[in-house]
Nucleic acid binder design. Structure first.
Lengths: 223, 223, 223, 223
DNA sequence: TATGAATGAGAATTCATTCAT
DNA sequence: GATGAATGAATTCTCATTCAT
């Protein structure tokens, strides 16, 4: 399962296989409905072996959480977005945003099964939610604020709007975009990724209102 | 538990209590981790009594699904949004959007625990997902398209954009808004609802880019 | 259900209905697998009502036992066989046997469902077995011995054979005959009852050996 | 428990123990009234262990059925009766019958607990009954017919009688014989097996009528 | 170290029995 | 008397975890 991307994280091979299998099974059934027996079968090892590497089933979930956090926020990954932002100086916002979103969507694709697991469990466990906030959301928000500050400074982004709101718009649009592709792929047939991204960014950038500034001004007068 | 809003759906009182308790417990632990024993305790009845009303634990979940769908899409509820849209003729888009969003957010508040349960299960069961799509998403999308068509026709909304994209932007922004309030209420302290809604709508309407049309035109030239 | 023949035993109507229903259900599923709920449904009464007439489920079985015994060995029934035997003086054994067997087979037909229930349970409960022995088998054996003694006295039946053996032969043949008709009716298609009875009696009377007395005498010499 | 005779059927030791315990408990209480907890206790294992070997309680019954059929009809057993019949050429019918009955009664003794279980269940489940018919009764009948044909051909058995009737007489007498010994051992004290068998065969062979051929001829004339 | 059989606590479910109406 | 909803003890079955090999 290359997509799960546990490689490169110097883990014992067995532990690696267990995590991969657990991600698969948790992702398909959810944590509680998954059985250690099925995980073992998927990992190609004996059930007892799991408990040499993880004291309890819950610990497997924690292992997934830690590794997902490592992948998403760790050096392996953050670097790429930092590179994009670092190299952003001469580019317009749409281009940067597209690069960032493309990079993030690729990331989401690769960690989707794990993300599904930990997001689901985060709904039920404060500690998981806290870990996600501390390790993923909070740093991402901070990084984004820096970027936004720069973009605003250069007059590329509205300065009359909270960075949180901007981030929310981007994340919200991206989230539904991902949900459509991953959960309702049969309902929302999409064109190629490139065009879709352009549309996505367009609405994030310019909103849904008519662009004509005259209209904007006179909006309130209409009846 | 007024928030769960099962009232008004002429159910036997015990069935009502069981569903309420189940929503609470499923919502806190997820379906699989919840036990019928705990549901019974919460409902203040004997465990065996549950099975007089629901043949299996799975049937309780189905009961919740059915009732949530009834609440969200049923007459009880749809009427209000239809009223808003029907009365929308003389209003500007932001006002309508605000009314609709406010109405929907109140609805989400009231069904949040149930919604959490069925959304979570929808991740793992195609049939639940399909039910949600058929009964909630699809009709909502259809209704919205009608509204958008009218709005576009009157020049209130961009006509160079797919209705799906507009809807996605609105839903995405609203979704993250809800997640912030419900799951990370301690992290994102919000001002009063009214102001927050204004900000939300502002970014949906006008995007994050600078409004200045000059800039927009020259955007691509910058380096 | 006329076949169950509980009529004529001045029972309260409800008790009657319960017993009839219980015979049906026990007969189809066995005592343990049957539920009082199903019995109630079959009797067309509320489940709770059963317990006004029978303190426990086990008591229903006892009720069936008592009534079956009443039917089989009681006045209602014994009379007919006694009449046959009383009127037997001028008849040959085959005729008497045929009359008795025909009478008993008709009886078995009518009580088969109950008999099935109590015979089955007699396998597992000493008390039931004891009741069957005391109330049915033992009196039947005694009565038969009287008849046999008479028959032997008149030279109609071998006098070099224990009455128990004679009875066993008759009962054994009859039992398998009944099993074939009741349990394997699809496997053993039978001619009409009359002819079958003749064959049955023939083998009981004369055995399976060649009738030729010469052969019989020389039988032991063969090697 | 040598009597249950599961030995020689290369089963895992635990499975063997479970089946033995189940035969004991089912035999004492019947299938439905028996509990897996009691079976486990009898087998000296944990209750959960049962379900590693048998998916459901019903499967234990099937296991018993299969093994009983194997024992009764399988190579282990049929061989002995075939040997007897094969070696029957120079013997008289009574001798052969005695050997066969003795062999079968020993078999019944050894499988009695299992037989009781599956015969009881066969009363309530067509599939069990069908399995018994196909695997035990039908082959036994076929085999017997061959033997009878030979015996008739040699003038040892009446040729004016259906083979089914002969078989019925033998089985019926044997069945009641077994029932007496197994279920009413306290009521019917028996002499030694050998003498009992002689009596059994005598009545099967020559019937209950007076042997005197003169009488037989004149039977119908008597009044 | 790896195994996988065995465990037993705990889960869902059933059902005879009770009892307020 | 009759009802049938409610009960909760008992039952079948599951599965994370242990441990002898």
């Amino acid at each position: 399962m290359d997509t799960q991307n546990l490689s490169g994280l110097d883990l014992p091979e067995k532990e690696h296989k267990i995590l991969e299998a657990a991600i698969k099974v948790f992702s398909e059934k959810g944590f509680s409905a998954a059985t250690t027996s099925e995980i073992a079968k998927n990992a190609g090892i004996a059930e007892g072996t799991i408990f040499r590497y993880f004291k309890t089933k819950k610990d497997i979930l924690r292992g997934i959480l830690v590794h997902t956090i490592n992948i998403i926020s760790g050096k392996l990954v953050l670097s790429s977005i930092e590179k994009i932002l670092a190299a952003s100086d001469g580019k317009d916002v749409r281009t940067i945003l597209k690069e960032v979103l493309y990079d993030r969507l690729k990331l989401v694709d690769s960690v989707f099964p794990m993300a599904r697991v930990i997001l689901t469990e985060s709904l039920f466990h404060d500690d998981v939610r806290e870990a996600i906030y501390q390790n993923i959301i909070s740093p991402a928000v901070e990084m984004f604020k820096v970027f936004l500050a720069k973009a605003i400074e250069r007059g590329m982004i509205r300065d009359d709007i909270d960075p949180e709101i901007v981030l929310r718009s981007i994340m919200g649009n991206a989230a539904v975009f991902i949900a459509q592709r991953k959960l309702f792929s049969d309902k929302f047939l999409m064109e190629d990724m490139d065009k879709e991204l352009d549309k996505l960014i367009d609405v994030i950038m310019y909103g849904i209102a008519v662009k004509n500034p005259d209209y904007i001004k006179s909006d309130k007068d209409l009846t």
